[in-house]
Design a protein around this nucleic acid. Structure first.
Lengths: 151, 151
DNA sequence: CAACATTAAATGTATGTACATAAATTTGCA
DNA sequence: TGCAAATTTATGTACATACATTTAATGTTG
């Protein structure tokens, strides 16, 4: 469906405004689809993303700072997302012995199991961008990188 | 900056996964820029968007249902965003006489003034997509619409 | 070494998102 | 008419986002 119809706005100021709105709307569309897919497993999207970063580190621990560094949303509060994962016993938190200010965060066996179950069920591998060919995705990546070019 | 460097992930599973992450990341980047621009005026991005819809209706009222219909994020809670705008006296709420279930929401003179001040300051007209040519934005719009194609 | 700055994480507060449910009103139809 | 269904908004709860502040540990420097 064209963006004009999705939000019932027939006319945009210009193609750039329409592109901006389309971009934000499409990203939201993708994220809602993903969030819905993870819901049966009791995970939100940020929780899932942090679990995956932790699996990437496993068996080494990650600190909160490392999680923020790798997260898409730098301003989100990794500390509290880890709270939720800890309550569900999907991760552990221990004071880092080498630097007692830092906290070592590790994925548990339960957490690893949950991730593999999600993957076995094929939840992740269905790409939200499957309508696009590889060439089209490359085009998209180039355009997006260009948008974020600083002066 | 390339998305690989933004989130310090050197390798993606495939171009599609990279595109997905790039899309979500870039939309967040755009929204954070916008939110920062509106902050000096005491408005959040959703609040600003609702104010603009109300101005589009002015002097006719809008209902909550109409706001939801035109919002990018259909699941957000328009009622509570209107709460904030009402507290700031930028909008009024009155029971709709023709249908007492509905609520007539109107932008106030203060609200209209605020919007024109924001526009005079040139906050909105600086497009987040100014790095792209018109042809590139058209390409982008076509790709985004294709992503959201249903089976 | 003591004082001060820096770093790492947690906490506080306001707002927004996602979804379920409630309350009031209107509509439709037996 | 009367009553169930549908409509419209508001409210409740859990979680996330955005940003400021606090707490504790570590570094730095006179």
């Amino acid at each position: 469906m064209r963006i004009e119809d999705e939000i019932k706005q027939p006319i945009f100021r210009d193609e750039h405004q329409k592109g901006h709105i389309n971009l934000v709307y499409t990203a939201g569309w993708l994220q809602l689809r993903q969030a819905t897919a993870f819901k049966p497993y009791g995970l939100t999207l940020p929780q899932f993303n942090i679990l995956r970063i932790l699996r990437g580190q496993h068996p080494l621990p990650a600190t909160v700072a490392l999680l923020i560094d790798r997260m898409l949303d730098k301003t989100s509060n990794a500390s509290r997302i880890v709270d939720r994962l800890e309550e569900k016993q999907l991760v552990t938190r221990t004071v880092c012995p080498a630097n007692r200010r830092a906290v070592d965060i590790r994925i548990t066996a339960t957490g690893l199991d949950l991730l593999s179950r999600i993957e076995q069920d094929g939840v992740i591998d269905v790409s939200g961008l499957r309508r696009l060919s590889t060439a089209e995705v490359q085009q998209l990546n180039a355009l997006l990188d260009k948008i974020r070019t600083e002066e």
